[in-house]
């Protein structure tokens, strides 16, 4: 079902045009990579504050209030360019091990951010000025730093076809993770 949809998506004229374009694809990809500096960069700065490793006398609310809009702007650019890149080769990315891990870890990072904003951050008025934030905030910062680092590394590795379904033989778990049975059937 999803296979057939993605195969159709990849054959739409705009998808083919994007993938085969001389400049559009590299420009979209470059925008995706350079916006990392804004999106992940701003996220790292806030996470370092939450772990108590940096900006110790800058209140946490400064970051969540005044830097977060920039993080959100970066996120929108990342999402739009990321979706365009996916649209250029949907079936290949869908069966790419690194892409799958990346998506899962991004979901985990999202859940972590949601839990932090619904939990510890609600009481930030009490602890936001502390040099070392409470445990829940330090954990949220550490999880976020780790998750986004994994997302960046796996994102970069999507470019490599080492574990693609048409490169066989592979260990069973690699084929399972890439969902290769659906391809060969």
């Amino acid at each position: 079902m999803i296979e057939r949809f993605l195969a159709w998506l990849g054959e739409t004229p705009w998808s083919v045009a994007l993938l085969e374009s001389l400049y559009a694809w590299p420009l979209v990809e470059s925008t995706h990579v350079l916006t990392l500096g804004l999106f992940v960069g701003a996220t790292i700065m806030m996470d370092l504050r939450l772990t108590g490793l940096a900006f110790r006398n800058v209140p946490v609310q400064s970051f969540t209030g005044r830097l977060l809009p920039w993080t959100h702007a970066g996120f929108i650019v990342m999402t739009v360019t990321g979706l365009l890149l996916f649209y250029s080769q949907p079936l290949r990315y869908y069966h790419n091990v690194f892409f799958r891990v990346k998506v899962l870890v991004m979901i985990a990072a999202g859940v972590n951010a949601f839990v932090f904003h619904r939990g510890a951050h609600r009481r930030a008025a009490d602890w936001g000025a502390d040099a070392i934030p409470p445990r829940a905030a330090r954990i949220a910062g550490t999880v976020s730093l780790t998750a986004w680092a994994v997302v960046v590394v796996t994102g970069r590795l999507i470019a490599y076809n080492w574990f693609d379904c048409d490169i066989q033989p592979q260990p069973g778990w690699v084929n399972w993770l890439a969902g290769c049975e659906a391809v060969t059937e």
Binding site: V33, L36, G37, L38, V40, G41, A42, T43, I44, M45, L67, W70, W148, A149, V152, V153, R156
Partner: peptide, 13 residues
């Protein structure tokens, strides 16, 4: 690339 992210954050702030 990870270095780029950290550099971007430290510069942008």
């Amino acid at each position: 690339l990870l270095g780029l992210c950290l550099l971007g954050g430290a510069l942008l702030v």
